[in-house]
């Protein structure tokens, strides 16, 4: 019961935060200098289009009525029309979202598999000299700007060696670029490799450090000593007892990581001309395409807030100590 109530209250909190973020965005775009209509209507739209948008978003009404209409449209998924692409913002966003999701998930999975394994290894070898080299190296990988790492990899593997394409998600005019099967085509994977590697190098540090410190903690706990005393093998103690318990916070970090990466991918998507939601946001802002910028921001924020919620659930449901205390 307690768990159910906690989940319900966390869900209410998520809805509240989403509403607050949408409201802040509404105010930011309305407080903009100049004509308030510029948020939705490009001067080059035809008279008819302008009238239609004026109606749809109630732009001729007072601010509080506009706000109600805005929230209603949001709930229906209507984010207006892009100035630049002359198309519905919602459909533009859904077009590129799978690309961002593919990039994020592939990079995160690689980063977490490598991070968890290396972290566990480092915890096991904690007294060795190896750690004195490994930890500063991990810190280095977290200090390098992602876009710069991407530039270096591009210069080496794309321009010098010519092993990978320099940008985009598909070769122009390639047959494979349609249908859901496109995400498994060799062409797509070749384009995905460098941006995913860049992100993975940046992202692996967190699970590594988390796993290491959790393992160090768990290895000191009674049940591990108990398992050792029972005469279980090192491998069994390490993997079946210690690692399982140390993994929980890493899993939570993974869920959070999905949310944060989708927002943080902006620069990597730009370096590799990856047709994702972050690059769309950058282009929209550069071109003063306000409806598209607003829509892309809201979508990134929604994913992040939702993943925060999921991470909290994971933490509550999977950790018996938390779910009982709460």
């Amino acid at each position: 019961m307690r768990t159910a109530r906690r989940i319900a209250s966390r869900f209410a909190q998520m809805v509240f935060v989403l509403w607050a973020v949408a409201t802040i965005l509404f105010l930011v775009f309305r407080l903009m200098p100049g004509n308030p209509l510029v948020a939705y209507i490009d001067p080059t739209f035809t008279e008819e289009q302008q009238q239609e948008l004026l109606q749809r978003f109630g732009l001729d009404r007072p601010l509080h009525e506009q706000y109600v209409i805005y929230l209603g449209n949001l709930l229906r998924g209507d984010l207006g029309d892009s100035f630049f692409y002359r198309d519905s913002v919602t459909s533009l966003l859904w077009d590129v979202f799978p690309n961002t999701l593919a990039l994020t998930m592939v990079a995160l999975i690689i980063a977490y598999v490598i991070g968890v394994l290396l972290g566990a290894l480092l915890a096991w070898l904690r007294t060795s000299r190896f750690e004195g080299i490994a930890i500063p190296l991990v810190l280095l990988s977290r200090a390098a700007p992602e876009f710069w790492l991407g530039m270096i990899l591009l210069a080496i593997f794309s321009f010098q060696l010519g092993w990978f394409p320099a940008g985009g998600a598909f070769t122009a005019g390639s047959e494979a670029a349609v249908g859901p099967g496109r995400f498994f085509s060799l062409d797509f994977l070749r384009h995905l490799f460098l941006p995913a590697l860049t992100l993975a190098i940046y992202l692996h540090g967190l699970p590594l450090l988390l796993m290491r410190s959790n393992m160090l903690e768990t290895l000191k706990e009674d049940f591990v000593t108990m398992a050792r005393m029972k005469g279980l093998s090192t491998w069994s103690v390490l993997v079946r007892h210690a690692a399982r318990n140390a993994l929980l916070p890493v899993l939570t970090a993974f869920a959070l990581g999905i949310g944060y990466s989708i927002g943080g991918n902006v620069v990597v998507e730009t370096v590799f001309s990856w047709p994702g939601i972050g690059r769309l946001l950058v282009r929209a802002v550069s071109a003063s395409d306000y409806p598209l910028a607003q829509g892309a921001f809201l979508m990134i924020a929604a994913v992040m807030v939702f993943m925060n919620f999921v991470a909290d659930l994971l933490y509550n449901v999977l950790d018996p100590r938390v779910s009982q205390d709460a």
């Binding site: 935060v17 989403l18 802040i24 965005l25 927002g263 943080g264 902006v266 802002v285 925060n308």
Partner: peptide, 12 residues
């Protein structure tokens, strides 16, 4: 915590 930081700087 619900505002994605880098996108927020860009929009700003």
């Amino acid at each position: 915590f619900g505002i994605p930081f880098l996108p927020f700087v860009i929009v700003l």
